[in-house]
Design a protein around this nucleic acid. Structure first.
Lengths: 339, 339
DNA sequence: TTGTAAGCGTTATCAT
DNA sequence: ATGATAACGCTTACAA
């Protein structure tokens, strides 16, 4: 690889002049500058970011840990982050915790040794203690996405989960449903808590008593959603729900399969609405009614926030941003059967 | 951040001893070693990978450029790469070229400055010349995934595209179809060429003449697939295809929508088979017949190959690995209408 | 305006 | 077995 010394030799100047010509052009005579730039171009010089980072004590690196890169929501989130990072000259190290706290801890350590200037993370159940154990955590701005770990001082970009869930359930109620089941995520995750709260609020506002048997944990995953749905729909007839609200798209995929495996039809036998819009939700028959989240915007905004935090040296106090969701009514929700 | 000097002071030894205790434990007395390790643990020491990389002239970094991170195929590919990389102690820089050669060129440069030890890439149309312009390209092993740019000396992990496409089209032919359309990707991309070739071979083997009007370019994207499908299905009745073979899942999503917008039913009015298995292909009604690719395995295997190349210093000559595809017959393909 | 020299944190070499 | 020293490539006082 070409280094500064090579360019310096070619341009007949000292290494410092090359460095200046490249990074602070106005500090060097126009004529020399031209000579240096030309030599650099000719040789195909690329500054070594390791050396530069070491010397300047800054890596221009951001860490991003999502909890499920295969889920469209997270992939889109990551794209938003990357696009924003690129705009500001940052590189992104992307990791995938798979919702496993141990993986998260490992990646956090690995990441730390690369001296990232900031961290974006979709927290898992143990993130709070992981961050507490991290030496660098105090000095580095951290932004949480989608959910929050409750770590003091961290920033977060989330959506209006309570409101979004409430609107979804109110939609079901307005269609005439009274027995509405919910497939929720793990209760330690804030999105699960908040969406459950929205479900509760909607029921309460409509004067419908909460039946704990109608709430089942799907652990954020497809298989969990399948099992939870089976459990809910196998309740004896009088208790069985006529509509289901599902906490995310992974579990919704499981729910759809469970419903089909039971030989039930959507929406004639059971209405279905879930969080997250995805391609399959649009293409399935009938198209799924969903609470759409602005995934790309969450990622982009979070990264913009992080960069602006990095610019102003003062460590701003943790702020939480909440973006709006949109209820997209399609064809998986209808009036309950009269019988 | 804690550095070696801090640990050295705490353990009452020199920095060199700390370094040795951490990386070559057998070169240091058991007793001293214990003291150092303890101090390191206590202080939460993490080696600075920038400094280490600079000194050892190796970054333990791999670059990965995919062409569409939002497509499940690429996301899965990336996961395979990351899992394999992690196993061997490598970090992965993930980029997304969006099929845009300019983006690819930018990322390649950016990547280069971070001194990756190897590169994994899903090439775009201009990758060959980009790699030629890269100073580091000669010294660094490169593996291409999914497609190949034809760059001399690079390795590649691909699938049996010709065979996979041929099986899909033969399946349609065996159902009685004679007028089979194909929505293909950009002709400069090798997967598009090979899948088209498989289509041609299947037709030829069945004694069906190739009709160029039945082949339309969908540019690998959903919108392109939509437009191409519309074009094919608007042919006058005698020429109109009774079945469609689509080159990837993005275009297939567009095809499904075009078919629906035309008020046609799958498979009664038109049979559909595409490359790539996805969740929506499984959940849509009727479930889509597809040529499934082992995306995770491609990524994992490519990364394993890269790492083994890194281990053996000798620059092995370019080898191409081809994995098998599987035709999954579901419900989107049936006999053509009799009329 | 340009050059010299020191230093970022680590490890390899050479002494001891 | 351990320590001193130099070097990786870059930037930045400071000197000229």
């Amino acid at each position: 690889m070409i280094k500064i010394a090579d360019v310096a030799r070619a341009a007949q100047v000292s290494p410092s002049t090359v460095s200046r010509a490249l990074t602070k052009p106005d500090l060097v005579a126009p004529e020399t500058r031209e000579r240096v730039l030309q030599a650099a171009r000719q040789l195909g010089y690329q500054p070594n970011k390791l050396a530069r980072g070491l010397r300047k004590q800054q890596s221009r690196l951001l860490g991003l840990i999502v909890s499920d890169i295969l889920a469209p929501f997270h992939a889109t989130l990551a794209k938003g982050v990357q696009d924003a990072a690129e705009k500001h000259g940052y590189m992104v190290f992307l990791f995938n915790s798979d919702e496993q706290p141990e993986k998260e801890a490992r990646y956090l350590q690995e990441l730390q040794s690369h001296w990232p200037e900031g961290l974006l993370i979709v927290p898992t159940a143990k993130t709070r203690q992981h961050l507490r154990n991290l030496r660098s955590a105090g000095s580095m701005p951290i932004i949480e996405l989608d959910r929050t770990s409750g770590t003091p001082g961290v920033h977060a970009v989330l959506v209006e989960n309570v409101l979004g869930a409430r609107e979804a359930v109110e939609h079901l109620i307005s269609l005439g449903h009274r027995r509405i089941g919910m497939v929720t995520g793990e209760p330690v995750i804030t999105t699960a808590q908040e969406r459950l709260e929205g479900y509760r609020q909607a029921l309460k506002a409509a004067g419908i008593a909460l039946d704990e048997r109608l709430v089942a944990n799907g652990y954020h995953k497809e298989e969990g959603g399948y099992a939870a749905t089976l459990q809910l729909l196998r309740l004896p007839a009088p208790e069985r729900p006529t509509a289901l609200f599902v906490g995310n798209s992974e579990m919704a995929a499981g729910a759809v399969q469970a419903i089909r495996d039971l030989g039930l039809r959507i929406p004639e036998d059971i209405s279905l609405v879930s969080f997250d819009d995805t391609r399959w939700a649009q293409l399935m028959e009938p198209a799924l009614t969903v609470v759409a989240q602005p995934a790309y915007e969450i990622g982009y905004l979070a990264c913009e926030t992080l960069v602006s935090l990095l610019r102003q040296k003062a460590p701003a106090e943790g702020r939480i941003l909440r973006l709006k969701t949109r209820l997209l009514i399609r064809h998986s929700t209808a009036r309950p059967r009269e019988d």
